[in-house]
Design a protein around this nucleic acid. Structure first.
Length: 500
RNA sequence: CGCGGGGUGGAGCAGUCCGGUUAGCUCGGUUGGCUCAUAACCAACAGGUCGCAGGUUCAAAUCCUGCCCCCGCAACCA
């Protein structure tokens, strides 16, 4: 039996900054999906990468007295570190400065051009040097002609650019989205986008004069123009597979899932499909749109100073705890809220008290009453439909809710049958021995099933639980899965602080 | 009338599409139980005008109308 191939992608972040929670969320969601698919026997390619061209990069490089290439060479590793810390088992890392990528992008440009989908157009408008961008008449009027961010007047500039005739594909794109051939998840994002293109998908400017943009992929057969972000960045999803020269790309494209943030949906549901259709390629099957992570109800921003560094969480609590919180308490398809207090409560309460303690008590009883031998009992067969269903619909937080209700049930079960009392009855009740064995074996097998369900979310924890109960002999010494941590909440056991 | 999301016990949410048992869950609070366990676990109780005002109906958190409030997007800071 050959494994079915599967392909999942993440957005490639711009390398001129520190990796943040949003990137981590991308990697996490894609990784959960990947591990789940692998668990179900599929062969998965999982793409990640970095977007390394553009003026901001060039400017940053200059400020650091580096040429752009050396600058990005020094920066992209930061993202690799984060991916590693999150535990993302990606298979392919693409940099937009990779030689193969650059060549492939130029090939793509030529094909689109030959298909008559690229045309030259002179754009005239109000330009702000500081933003390196054009502004609409309305904005210029509203600000009396002065850019509020830079305190400089807008300039009237005309610029010749190449455009991609995305509008030509409006109907096909709309049809693909409506029919679900290219599914946008969640549903309300789909409606949002359909509303946005009600008047058609807009053509989009895909190049800049070289004098305005030097650090980028050259437009084929026109030295005066350099590619602007769109074709360069979006193409990564196929170039990383080897498109066009390594035929293996065909065994993975179209992608099963493309993970994106809500802010870039418009590009991935509009421009990207237009490119693919222009190349006669199939569209991705699903665009999974996640929300933003807020902090204490407010947008995370550098100016407010409430930015949370994912590395800090992982370093203090471990990757599994990070993965757990963001998978369960940040709704997969909506905005979520992070606070250190929420995080720590989830860590100590749900991971420590609910799950960690459960593993501990079951293991301890088996060790204490049966010298560590689990013995045989009917296999625990819990209903997994809820879990499977949630996973299938990419509602990871719901899947975890389901797992936790199993955890809760097992705690309740133990309370009901009271194995510690059965253990005492063994002295004068011959049936007690067998009964106890059955109860504990059932508990162990339930925990093994829970571990299976946790594989996509908390691989290390799943493995730890597995290694305790799977061999039939519980190790004499086991370390607590989630020891209590009180960095941001008060320790209830701590002596009362009477000072002040 | 730009588009969308939301307003449910102290906090966070489910339920709303397809009206109908005592409005459900987690956390927090109180009380109790248990002692296998990471002072963990289990149970019970307290606590709600389901944003406001009308309407439809035997019956509305759920359907209809109007209004108020919060938050996103609309603007290449994921």
């Amino acid at each position: 039996m050959t494994k079915t191939n599967a392909y999942i992608t993440t957005a490639i972040p711009y390398v001129n900054g520190k990796p943040h929670i949003g990137n981590a969320l991308d990697y996490l969601l894609a990784d959960i999906w990947t591990r789940y698919q692998k668990q179900n026997g599929r062969q998965v390619r999982f793409q990640v990468g970095t977007d390394e061209h553009g003026n901001k990069i060039a400017a940053k490089a200059r400020a650091n007295n580096l040429d752009p290439q050396s600058y990005v060479d020094g920066m992209y590793g930061n993202f690799k570190i984060l991916m590693g810390a999150v535990g993302a088992e990606y298979t392919d890392f693409v940099r937009t400065t990779d030689q193969h990528h650059v060549a492939a992008v130029q090939y793509i440009w030529r094909r689109l051009s030959q298909a008559g989908l690229i045309y030259k157009h002179t754009y005239e408008g109000w330009y702000c040097m500081g933003h390196e961008a054009f502004f609409t008449d309305k904005e210029v009027h509203d600000t009396s002609g002065i850019c509020p961010d830079h305190q400089t007047p807008y300039e009237r500039v005309s610029e010749e650019n190449y455009y991609l005739r995305a509008s030509a594909f409006t109907e096909r794109i709309r049809q693909a989205i409506e029919s679900g051939k290219m599914k946008i998840v969640p549903e309300f994002r789909k409606n949002e986008f359909l509303e946005l293109i009600k008047n058609g998908v807009q053509d989009v400017s895909i190049s800049r004069p070289r004098k305005n943009l030097s650090w980028g992929v050259s437009v084929p057969d026109d030295d005066t123009q350099v590619m602007y972000v769109w074709i360069d960045a979006l193409a990564n999803y196929i170039t990383v597979l080897g498109y066009p020269d390594n035929p293996e790309w065909q065994t993975y494209w179209p992608a099963d899932v493309q993970v994106i943030g809500k802010d870039i949906l418009r590009f991935h549901a509009g421009i990207w499909p237009a490119m693919l259709l222009g190349l006669d390629l199939p569209l991705p099957k699903v665009l999974l749109v996640h929300g933003f992570v807020h902090v204490g109800g407010a947008k995370m921003s550098k100016t407010v100073g409430n930015v949370v560094d994912p590395m800090e969480i992982i370093q203090n609590y471990g990757a599994d705890a990070f993965r757990y919180f963001f998978a369960r308490h940040i709704p997969t398809q909506e905005d979520g809220d992070f606070t250190w207090e929420k995080f720590e409560n989830a860590y100590n309460g749900e991971l420590g008290n609910d799950l960690g303690n459960l593993v501990q008590r079951v293991a301890a009883m088996i060790t204490r009453y049966q010298a560590g031998v689990i013995g045989n009992a009917p296999q625990a067969e819990h209903d997994m439909t809820g879990y499977r269903d949630a996973m299938q619909h990419l509602q990871f937080s719901q899947a975890l809710d389901d797992v936790w209700s199993s955890v809760r049930s097992l705690n309740q079960y133990l309370e009901r049958v009271k194995p510690w009392q059965i253990a005492k009855q063994r002295a004068n009740d011959h049936d007690a021995e067998g009964h106890l064995n059955e109860v504990l074996a059932y508990a162990a097998s339930t925990l093994l099933q829970i571990a299976d369900e946790l594989v996509p979310f908390m691989p290390t924890t799943a493995e730890a639980i597995h290694s305790i109960f799977a061999t039939g002999i519980v190790p004499a010494q086991i370390t607590p899965l989630f020891p209590k941590i009180y960095l941001h909440t008060s320790n209830p056991q701590a002596p009362q602080d009477t000072r002040k």
